[in-house]
């Protein structure tokens, strides 16, 4: 690992000020540290935001669940309040990586990184989340821009993610057998007026599958999507799964999600 300057800002303002094109925020370090160790990323400044109290914590209101950016996956997975409001969100958090990853990795880090196979982005999309940063609020649908790309600007810090509580929801994932990231992850949320089927792992970035969402909006049953064939031309293809396999898995897991609702 190359040497860097390590900063521990006391508040968000200070953190944002320290940021530059060659800096990174350090939350759980579950993505940034390994990539630095492997020499895939080098930074001049590492800005540790774990000690900014304001960024961590869970708030549940009647309509929303708000999770602070540096809240760890394990905290979400074990939160009774979240489980009551959106049980699928605790399930998602509890299924990320392994115990070590869940005890360090954070919501903010996960969505800022926008790994195409990360789980949280699908929850954001399906649950119409609003991403609160230090200077604005961004709708999930406008936040995830592409592979490892988000709407965040230089120095912009995620403070919290506000999820809309759905009527019903479920998250299903086909884990990468090695890393346990999602080969395909399907987050299904039935809201009062609409059904969202958000898919991660399958394409270069998380997306709402319009066909599945539409079919389930008109009839919320697995038979409504049974046998549906998705276009696999834009699906990811790698050593673990071809595009065709992924396309099939999306439908399979969407069905499982409906059945589990």
């Amino acid at each position: 690992m190359k040497t860097f300057n390590y900063h521990v800002p006391k508040n968000v303002k200070e953190a944002s000020k320290l940021a530059s094109t060659s800096s990174a925020f350090l939350a759980g370090g579950m993505t940034s540290v390994p990539s630095m160790k492997l020499g895939l990323a080098t930074y001049k400044d590492i800005i540790d935001i774990k000690h900014i109290k304001k960024l961590s914590g869970i708030k549940v209101s009647g309509k929303t669940v708000t999770i602070g950016a540096t809240t760890k996956h394990a905290e979400v997975a074990n939160s009774r309040d979240v489980k009551k409001a959106i049980p699928s969100l605790t399930k998602l958090a509890g299924g990320i990586g392994d115990a070590q990853v869940r005890n360090r990795g954070t919501v903010g880090g996960s969505i800022a990184n926008n790994d195409p196979s990360a789980c949280y982005p699908s929850a954001c999309m399906a649950l119409n989340a609003i991403i609160h940063t230090n200077n604005r609020k961004i709708e999930a649908s406008k936040f995830f821009k592409g592979m490892f790309e988000t709407a965040l600007k230089k120095g912009e810090l995620i403070e919290a993610v506000e999820f809309q509580i759905p009527v019903k929801s479920n998250y299903q994932k086909h884990p990468n057998p090695a890393s346990r990231y999602a080969i395909v992850g399907v987050y299904l949320a039935k809201h009062k007026k609409e059904v969202n089927v958000a898919v991660t792992g399958a394409k270069s970035s998380v997306y709402i599958d319009k066909d599945l969402s539409k079919a389930l909006s008109s009839s919320f049953s697995s038979s409504a999507i049974d046998g549906m064939k998705l276009d696999s031309s834009e699906m990811n293809s790698d050593i673990h799964a071809s595009g065709d396999f992924r396309a099939s898995l999306v439908v399979t897991y969407a069905k499982k999600a409906v059945e589990a609702c």
Binding site: N176, P177, A178, S179, H240
Partner: peptide, 11 residues
């Protein structure tokens, strides 16, 4: 070797 880490090599 494209499976040279535990992200890709399945233990």
């Amino acid at each position: 070797l494209i499976t040279a880490s535990y992200m890709d090599y399945t233990m």
